[in-house]
Design a protein around this nucleic acid. Structure first.
Lengths: 149, 149
DNA sequence: GTAATAATGAGAATCATTCTTATTATAGGA
DNA sequence: TCCTATAATAAGAATGATTCTCATTATTAC
């Protein structure tokens, strides 16, 4: 998991940003770096805390650009703040386990077998509805060990 | 699906609201009725459009109460507005297919077999993470037929 | 280098949602 | 049936995450 290294990410980022006529600037590189180190989805406040050089408005703007470029995914939960993480072709396909009390989000993987069976079912369903699928997401909502105590 | 009738819902609503010391008022009954007729998750604006008697602030407040009572579920997507629908013990367990361009949300059902396999996998994963599961949600994101044309 | 264009950052603006408060409705006891 | 205590309502104000504006700074192409 996440065997892709920094050099490869930079190359990917440059090429995907270029394809939408955007540059891979210093700020964008910083944000990608912070997301890569985070190993789990984080909020904009957490990004700002890890690098005080970044302006809030720039982080909002750049995350939107990085999302358009397909490099970053925005995760919406019932929390006040959105969470962000690197796109699945950089990490790998996975799902989220969310602690409702504290808002923490962690990644998990389904077994290849279940994942495949699920994808086949979903494709059939999309066909029935006349939808073209972009992606699916599966969240597990509950309470983490720390919040139970 | 959704074989429960209005009388049963009213009874359920009364009992679940009472258990958190809340009343099943006229406004709350109206909101439940609108959600039942909608057959798919709708926004607060859509609720206000179906009944001009309701004050916006009351709808917000009452949906929060109905959600606490476990009668209503709030659905968050990337859209600006949250969507609401009746809880799964009133409808039945299902998932959502979401059109990203227009924001429409429809319900779908997984085959019992896949659903069961999935739930078993998720239980194992929750155990590994030391989480207690509340529920899971599965969304299919894509583009509906109308938005493709 | 220089001009043209894009990105930045500070703060203002937006807008869904939540909060406040005076008014109205409801339930339970006398 | 009337009181009284308490809950719900509705109108608008307040909040706060996110988006927008625009003057300044950086980058690219020639």
């Amino acid at each position: 998991m996440n065997t892709i290294n920094r050099m490869d990410i930079d190359q990917l980022a440059t090429s995907q940003l270029n394809s939408i006529n955007q540059r891979y600037t210093t700020n964008r590189r910083k944000i990608i770096g912070i997301l890569q180190e985070a190993t789990k989805p984080i909020t904009i406040n957490q990004i700002l805390e890890s690098n005080s050089d970044l302006a809030q408005s720039s982080v909002y703007r750049n995350l939107a650009v990085l999302e358009q470029a397909g490099l970053v995914v925005r995760i919406i939960t019932n929390e006040d703040h959105a969470h962000y993480e690197l796109a699945e072709h950089i990490l790998d396909h996975h799902h989220h386990i969310i602690c409702s009390p504290c808002g923490e989000i962690l990644d998990f993987h389904l077994s290849a077998k279940i994942e495949k069976a699920l994808e086949e079912s979903l494709q059939k369903i999309a066909d029935e509805f006349g939808f073209s699928i972009d992606r699916h997401r599966l969240d597990l909502l509950g309470t983490c060990g720390d919040c139970t105590e």
